[in-house]
Amino acid sequence: MLALPGEDGAIIAGGQSLLPLLNFRLAAPSCLIDIGRLDELRRIVEGDGYIEIGGLVRHCELAASAVIGEAFPLLHQAIGHIAHPGVRHRGTLGGSLAMADPAGELGACCLALEGRMSLQSVRGQRWVGAEDFFTGIYETALAGDEILTAVRLPRRGPGGIQIFKEVARRRGDFALAGLALVAGANLSNPRLALLGVADRPVLAARTMALLREDGSAMGSAVDRAVAQIGKEVDPAQDPAYPPAYRRHLVQVLLRRTLAELSP
């Protein structure tokens, strides 16, 4: 239906992003395509070396999944910050990622976890890495006729680190800034994704490199990483929450995260 000429349809799943857009008259699709009953998109599948989460899996289902809790505690930590139970019972992983809110928790998590998105249309299926999926504020690699059917997350080795942190004004509000840190034991191969500080979820590549070099979360290495991440992020102008504030928050969050890792 998305591919039909003359139609300007919009996919609706949980409706937690689309309905506000419709309410504000920011979106005016000619029709809504409800994919809510496509059960095959509502599965969590354990594959060889990866776990695949269907696009229609709801936040509450992720939070209730022992498989996810064991493999990706990061997601469980993050879901606790997503709005409130009403939203978590309707909102879906695919909807959240396709919305690509720069302050969205799950986008940053997928980025940190090296997720790959399955984009499907009548033309076929393609896989896009999280780094390439998010292309700007509310913008993704999804073509007009594609839907996000699943996210594939590679399993991590044992003894690894997964930490999610954010600061919001009130419980469940959009994050003013947040981070998702994923690494092996002893902070090896760290991946540090940030939310709320750019037009999309971003990796703090230079800070990651520094952490990899220092191989430590102690003492002066922490100070160096915190200083580096302050230089690395460049939040947009916002009269209520100026860039200096968000930059400061990312530094605070990184310091707190690394403090948890020090013995």
Binding site: F24, R170, R171, D173, P239, A240
Partner: peptide
């Protein structure tokens, strides 16, 4: 929490509950 913010041109920046924060039970 609560503030109606305007920009210098007199445009209201807090036109929804996403930007105009009300106190919630949790806090």
């Amino acid at each position: 929490y609560e503030e109606l913010r305007y920009d210098n041109a007199g445009h209201l920046l807090t036109g929804s509950f996403a930007d105009y924060l009300v106190p919630m039970a949790g806090e």
